[in-house]
């Protein structure tokens, strides 16, 4: 289970055991990976595709499954001009082999033994590593007070929507707040704008409760939210960020 360990990071083959269409553009691949060493919530894997002519393309994908889950899951958003994601979302089939290496990363990880109140801020597919944390929290029977603020373009773009509803209704300390930035269903009473200072002030923990915060999503959203929290006098050392670039945008 150690995330470090001086061993070579080797490419290995996983077999697609299950495919879950999460939204029209997003799918989860549940993989059987022989001799998987285990991972920590928040880590990622590199996935490599090789064309018939030998050309290789490689991308990083966050692990969506909890460390406690028997199989490894990644969740991938299809980018129409992408080299890897259109294959993983739409073309790959059950039983196919996928080449991957990992787990990678030790900075953007959360352990259920951390008792600090947890604030998770996600934009678009930035929810994925945070979902691994929520699944880890549930699997470890943690009651750490946890708040998720999740920004999506529309309700149809919300990844893991049903599971998030279940987690929030389990009465074990998780609240989930959505903001829908582009399109809202009729009668929507939630937030309908990009994450701003007023929203963070309403949703996040008071800073004197010393929360630990994880922010993941498109680069401008991550930097915006982190800057706002620092302006609100949150300890920068307690704010961890992961930037996904321009992809998976929630704007």
């Amino acid at each position: 289970m150690s995330s470090r360990g001086p061993r070579l990071l080797e490419w290995r083959l996983g077999t697609v055991a299950e495919l879950v269409q999460e939204t029209p553009r997003v799918a989860s691949l549940v993989l059987d990976v022989p001799d998987w060493q285990g991972h920590l919530a928040g880590q990622h894997v590199d996935v490599r595709l090789t064309a018939d002519d030998g050309y290789q393309a490689q991308r990083s994908y966050s692990i969506a499954s909890a460390p406690e889950d028997p199989r490894l899951a990644i969740t991938v958003e299809r980018l129409d001009d992408g080299e890897v994601s259109p294959y993983l979302v739409g073309e790959v089939r059950k039983g196919d082999k996928v080449e991957l290496r990992g787990p990678i990363g030790g900075y953007f990880v959360w352990r259920a033994t951390d008792a600090r109140p947890l604030l998770l801020v996600a934009g678009g597919s930035g929810i994925v590593p945070l979902m691994a944390m929520l699944r880890h929290r549930a699997a470890a029977h943690s009651t750490t007070p946890t708040r998720l603020l999740y920004s999506s373009r529309s309700l149809d773009d919300v990844i893991y929507r049903a599971e998030l509803e279940r987690l929030a209704s389990a009465s074990d300390g998780v609240t989930v707040t959505h903001t829908l930035t582009r399109m809202q269903p009729p009668g929507w009473k939630g937030y309908a704008r990009r994450i701003d200072r007023a929203m963070l002030a309403e949703v996040c923990w008071p800073k004197d409760q010393m929360p630990i915060t994880y922010i993941c999503g498109p680069t401008p959203m991550v930097e915006g939210a982190a800057t706002l929290l620092v302006d609100m006098a949150f300890d920068p050392a307690s704010i961890k960020t992961e930037r996904f670039g321009a992809t998976g945008g929630s704007s």
Partner: peptide, 13 residues
């Protein structure tokens, strides 16, 4: 430029 700006997590591998 912001499209291409990532952080150190991206070079972990």
């Amino acid at each position: 430029q912001s499209d291409l700006k990532l952080d150190g997590n991206a070079i972990g591998g």
